[in-house]
């Protein structure tokens, strides 16, 4: 048994040495396919992360027709806080609004001197619980607010949210379709590359069958070869991704992403990295399996 394993590995390695061009073609094909799929995966998870950050900043601002009388304020805040969708409630009185406006205008604040303190409307700024940071959640909040308060106007970046949601959904969908398509294409190319190496070695296969090698004995080295090639392909794609990712970061291209300051681009987790290499192995084995089935007959 051990003897066989040793023999299989030696044969697989020798085969690869013997046909370096075909072998590297198979490895590179898999590396390219895997790297493309993984790149797409990275784009999707980073955009999702970005989306996550952006939606964290989503809040509903409810402008009131009339400011809330001081004695009712605590009660209303309590009611609002009890709604399951709402995480935080912050009341901005007319005076607060004016004060903010003043700070924003800075040097030009004196322009406001002639104005009444109650020009600006009072408002509630509502933080939303994460699971309701979507269109439905916001619709529910609006409904509740309309029942509770006398509203003048509502702001929550609705158009933007809708568009962004559908964009992320589309990205996921395209990623899924493109990813499966690419993997299929890789499988096809790998299977054909291995078919080519099998064709180049048909004499050897014929003689093996002639001297009484079993199917298993003939096939295992090729499956192993596919696995090794897939492993190397996966490794190369991983190295390539790491290098280009680090390059991206070191060139501080991240600043082009209009992102919150603490935003960090995500790379593959250790498990995902292992998964990438393992996918290479699976791809290689499947590729050689499918071509062996058609090629090796006794």
């Amino acid at each position: 048994m051990l003897e066989n394993i040793r023999y299989f590995i030696l044969r697989a390695l020798r085969n690869m040495r013997q046909w370096p061009f075909l072998c590297s073609a198979a490895i590179l094909t898999m590396a390219v396919a895997l790297a493309t799929v993984a790149t797409f995966f990275l784009v999707v998870i980073n955009v999702e992360q970005l989306a996550q950050r952006w939606t964290e900043e989503i809040q509903v601002i409810a402008y009131l027709r009339k400011p809330v009388p001081q004695r009712d304020l605590a009660g209303i805040i309590e009611t609002l806080k009890n709604y399951p969708e709402i995480a935080e409630v912050h009341y901005v009185s007319q005076q607060d609004a004016m004060a903010r406006f003043r700070t924003r205008l800075a040097d030009d604040a004196s322009l406001l001197d002639s104005m009444d303190a109650d020009v600006l409307p009072a408002s509630f700024e509502l933080g939303i619980r994460p699971s309701f940071r979507n269109q439905e959640g916001i619709d529910r909040i609006i409904e509740r607010l309309e029942n509770t308060l006398e509203l003048d106007d509502l702001r929550y970046g609705q158009k933007w949210l809708e568009r962004f949601n559908s964009f992320v959904n589309m990205l996921r969908f395209v990623g899924l379709v493109l990813g499966s398509f690419l993997l299929l294409a890789a499988l096809f190319i790998v299977s054909n590359t291995i078919k080519l190496t099998l064709y180049a070695r048909r004499d050897e296969l014929e003689i093996m069958a002639l001297v009484g090698a079993t199917m298993r004995f003939i096939k295992v080295p090729f499956l192993l070869e596919g696995a090794i090639q897939g492993f190397l392909g996966g490794l190369i794609s991983l190295l390539f991704l790491m290098l280009s990712f680090n390059l991206l970061i070191s060139r501080s291209l991240t600043s082009f992403w209009l992102t919150p300051g603490d935003f960090q681009l995500l790379f593959l987790t250790l498990n995902q990295q292992l998964g990438l290499v393992f996918s290479g192995v699976v791809l290689g084995v499947l590729g050689s399996l499918s071509s062996l089935r058609r090629f090796v007959r006794i």
Binding site: Q18, D203, E204, E206, I207, A209, L210, V211, G212, A213, T214, M215, F217, I298
Partner: peptide
Amino acid sequence: RGNQIPYLRRKIGVVFQDFKLLQS
């Protein structure tokens, strides 16, 4: 059966006009 053929061939040596050796 196909999976029995190898065991038949282990009892038989075959020599051809064109040798069928592996050149590599």
